[in-house]
Structure formats: C-alpha cells, structure tokens
Nucleic acid binder design. Structure first.
Length: 122
RNA sequence: CAAGUUGACCGGGCGAUCGCGGAGCGACAAUGUUUAGCUCUGAGGAAAGUCCGCGCUCCACAGAGCACGGUGCUGGCUAACGGCCAGGCGGAGCGAUCCGACGGAAUAGCGCCACAGAGAAGCAUAUUGCCGGCCCGGACCACCGGGCCGGCGAGGGUGAAACGGCGGUGUAAGAGACCACCGGCGUCCCUGGCGACAGGGGCGGCCAGGCAAACCCCACCGGGAGCAAGGUCAAGCAGGCGCGAUGGAGUGGCUCGCUCGGCGCCGGGUAGACUGCGCGAGGCGGCAGGUAACUGCCGUCCCAGAUAGAUGAUCGCCGCUCUCGUAUCGAGAGAACAGAACGCGGCUUACAGGCCGGCUUGGAUG
RNA sequence: CGGGGCGUGGCGCAGUUUGGCUAGCGCGCUACAAUGGGGUUGUAGAGGCCCUGGGUUCAAGUCCCAGCGCCCCGA
C-alpha cells in the first residue's frame, strides 16, 4: 500500500486485532490480490530500531502470504514492545493475529511458516 | 619489561537456500505498472547530530550603502571554511607531548569590580601599627599608661586583586625620596625572519590593575532561498469581494538601483508520472615538487540510488570473548555505536573488541 | 530542508535583561494549635548539586561552546 488515502480508509472502516507486540488492521479492497502496509512510528526509536521492526514483520508476512485469502488490505502496526524481540516472537505474533482475523485459507498450523521453510531446506 | 604519550588502521571471514531494491540482456506471449529466466550489483567510520563551508538550481547581470550575523596571533593549503598544515607567543608536565575565541581598556565612548576590608581605580586610605612634639599620671632613673597635634606608607590584617622586587643610601620613623641591579611599560635604532615575533643597544618617566566569552571600536568575510531548489507532461476546479500609479510585485530588515506589469483576501481543485539522480573538487597504485597540509603527471577501476522508502530469514564451517565440564578437547551463551535520501570537504558526538608504528620516562641485562 | 522556544523543590511558574548578597511565589507535603471529629484557618518546618559536560571570569541559574530530552511553526 502506497497511498495516504488507502491508510485513511483502513483507519475509518477497517477491523483490528491486538497483540502485545503488534496491532493488525485489515479490510477488503475489491482487488484480486492482497496489499500490505507496515507502520513503525517514531515512538519505537531511531532509524535502526524502526527498520528492524519493519523488516521482521515483512518477513513474517512473506512466509504466511501463500496461505492467505486474497483481496484484503492488511496493515501491521509495531508497538514499542517489539524492539529487541527475536524473529520467532514476531513470527508467532503475526501468525496469531492473522489466525484470529480468519484470513488463512487452510487451517492455521502452529508454525506453519516454519514448516514451509523446513521444506525449503530439504 | 613497565608506565605514559602520539599517529595510522580494522569494525568478523567463507559458503548454501528462500526473499527484496537497482542496471543490462531478454525466450514465450503480445503493449502489459510486461513476465519467467540469466549476468552484474546493493549502507558507514561515523551513513548520525545538522554546527560550518562549497558545488548545483532559481530569484534581473548578483549590484551599492546601512543594519544584522560571523570570524579574530602569523604564514601557507584549498572550490571554500569557524577546517587542515607549519610557525610564534602564553600556560601545564621531569619529558615525549598536550591545551589556548590569542586584536583593542594612554584610539574613543557607556560601563562593571559584590561580600570582606581603613582603602577597589585613580594620584585611594589611616583600623591594627611605627615615629616625633606637647600635656597629665606612676616611678630614683631606664621606662610604663592615657589624651591632643603632626609625620609615615615599611610590617600585620581583609580580599580574586592593595599601585613593582632584592639590597643600599637616607631618616625621628619611613617611602622610587634617592642609587645600583632585575622585572615590566613607552619610544628610537641595529640584527635575524615573508610575517607573527625573537635577540641586542640607547633614551624616557619611575611603574601605568582586571573584565570586551555584556555593549562597543578596529580588520576581514557574508545578496536571498533551498532538490518539497528547478524543469517537462498529465489530471482536475467556480468563482466572489476589496484595493489600485508619491502605489504594487520580484526582494528577504531598510534605502537606492534594476526588471516586471495588476495586487490582496475569501472560496474551489490537484498533490500523480518522468526528470534533476550519480564519471565525481571520485577511489586505488606509482613517480615528481613541497618540512607538511597539499598539488601535478601517468596507469588502472566504475563503486547504492529507494520514494509507505530495497540489506531480511534459516543453516554449516572457521576466528574472537565469557561460563561450565570428564580440560592440546567438548558443550552452552555472547559480540558495540549505528542505516544512504542531491552530492562533496570538514567539525562534533557515540562506539564491543582488535592490530601496527613512532617517541618519552624509569628499571634490568649485555 | 529551514526556523523558533522550553528544561529551576512533588506540580505550575518567577529570577537570566546589564553575572554578586539567603534562588523567590502559589498549590501540595510534615508537625503543632484551634474542633467531639473532619474541612476551613493560624503558626512553624522540610524539600533545589537551577537538564548534562566543558570554557571565560575572583565569582555562572545568568555569558560562550558542545551534547541530551521535549514542544511548536513554515515549505
């Protein structure tokens, strides 16, 4: 997502799920594919901390993406507790949030993304 | 060997899989925000803070004066600088070395120096004192105590700072009152140096406090804005009111000059694409000039370009640090500060750990 | 990218202009008095290395430099 108006629309009529590390906001977009947005505000710290949080969320979403329903705008907002967390914690948080929002096509296997990676390395 | 001081450098390495940004080629398909695939490439020493200086772009051709701001020993380097190099002076240290906004207060002005102290900036002062004369009291004298008048700036004391220092002459006691030497000030001359300045000599007056990092004076520098600069294209909208040539806009604090030819307020619309945008005051190596900063020549290399903003995830081996154990080995844990946004030269600040060199002082040995 | 402001007891602010004497004010806090008890009131008191580190000065909350944190404005 790269328009200010898209984010504004989601803030107006999107639905949200909360987690101590991340807040999920989502809504249907009437397209054939998903669009994603990541927000890491000044509250998290300076550039290194904010970049780190955004990259971990991006990687977690990339692993889940093949198993998600198409046609949604999905925005992940980092909270201050995410600073210093390892990838496993962020991945678990994203999987948990997407499962609670019922965006998975298949049953949300715990650590399904991890199994995907296991098949990649043999 | 130990302690110290200083300069330069590194900022884990190699490989595999899955992803992301950029450039080029591009089968199939056929003009799509083209795609699969292949090749190359993708954060730092500070990319940071944004404290200075430039390039670049626009504002007339970048102009004048004032105001304002900055810099402040000398010479050099540079595109430029508040940076760097070399030197001078002052200070700290045994020393290597380090630190210094380091022009001006007899060039002028408005000024400040609290408290304490007798007196705090000009020819200042008499508290404790020292000395002389007179008077009174005690006493055989020497002398002691008190009062009045006068002289004095040496000693004590206050303070951050008290109007030169040691010695002598002199005197009732003293004092640059006078003398020699020294320090410091002003001025003239000689020598060395481009210069700051240093060394030496003559003369003068006897001695002149500090603060300009509050204002100020002097010298030098600075036109304004900034890549959201600027340029091209596309999309979209609706006008209304007021002022209007000794005026308005470009123009920013003022005046002049120059140029342009309506301007202001309210309301309405759009905030998309391309370009600027990376061959550069560029990196590395060599040679030459220069004490050095730096410069010139030759060779060689192409080395990030995102735009809700690309560097991430997982694993193997090696290296480093710590802990534990069955201890030339094994297991576990850890590894700083920090992320390009037009580019560059500096400065400043943050930083785990490591490596190399110079110099100084002290000790031991030969 | 450019510009401006703030940081002083627990809280809100003065003082910074032109450096100096014990850094003040209001609310709050503690103790005592007054009341049967509480509030109001009165009296007394505690609480500050003036955001941090350097520098100038005899002397810095104040002047200068660097840093940290927060807030605001313009494009």
């Amino acid at each position: 997502m790269r328009r200010m108006s898209d984010f504004a629309r989601l803030r107006e009529c999107g639905r949200t799920q909360r987690h101590p590390l991340i807040i999920l906001s989502y809504a249907e977009n009437n397209l054939e594919h998903n669009r994603y947005g990541f927000i890491a505000g000044r509250r998290l710290g300076k550039a290194v901390k904010r970049n780190r949080a955004r990259r971990l969320m991006r990687e977690a979403v990339r692993c889940c993406h093949p198993n998600l329903h198409p046609g949604y705008d999905i925005v992940l907002i980092a909270r201050t507790a995410i600073v210093g967390q390892p990838f496993e914690a962020v991945d678990a948080a994203v999987t948990n949030l997407l499962a609670r929002a019922q965006l998975f096509t298949t049953a949300p296997v715990p650590g399904g993304a991890a199994g995907d990676r296991a098949s990649d390395s043999y």
